[in-house]
Design a protein around this nucleic acid. Sequence first.
DNA 1: ATGGCCAATTTTATTGGA
Length: 254
Amino acid sequence: MKIATWNVNSVRARLPRLLPWLEAAKPDVVCLQEIKCLDEQFPREAIEELGYNVVTYGQKTYNGVAILSKQRPDAVVRGLPGEGPDAQKRVIGATIGDTLVYSLYVVNGEAVGSEKYAYKLDWMRRLAEFVRTLDVKEKLVLCGDFNVTFDDRDVYDPVAWREKILCSTPERDALKRVMEPGLVDAFRHFEQEAGHYTWWDFRTRGFQRGQGLRIDHFLLSEPALSCARAVEIDVAARDGEKPSDHAPVIATLA
DNA sequence: ATGGCCAATTTTATTGGA
């Protein structure tokens, strides 16, 4: 089974890239982030025509997550526990066969020390609390845009980014706490080298300069990790006409 | 050191992204 995660930066704007990518990569499950539309605005039919079931948790303009799956999803969960109707839409989960899959869009945080940064740390604390209630003895896949790097290997210029947003120690500690119940960074299970990135800044033309960060992740429970055969970043999808600023990441599970 | 690009809405500016 191939599971992909992709921050598409507006699913409607990205449809001309998403549809051909689905046809070529043929993932069984796709976790989308930043769909940036209401549920009723989601281009559901075009994706269903390619053989996918679609579950969404959208909001106007900002955020929004979705899961596409060839197999029918069961037990769909939207949001973190206790969220009201006005909450930012950042979490959707579904059971696909014997695997519990979550599509996550972690708060950006703007800048270290800002109000949004404090909100990010608090949101990640709530996420960690929620993950503690999940069963890591089952196949569990938490993937998405975590907006946090693990270490210097995930950063094109670690000196410039030292303790900056996406790289600060409190953010990295918060991510470790999410994983504490027994989740592993599946990409690093297969690859130790520095210089593998999933996001490149539009403004600096970061992709063309090779300046990126690895912030989109697959966090797997032990039973899921033991099935994992590969985790790969589809860098080609970041190139070309009207790309997202993120590349998709694909995990292959036996 | 700064700004750059992109998408959506509040649209000929503003907000947010990371």
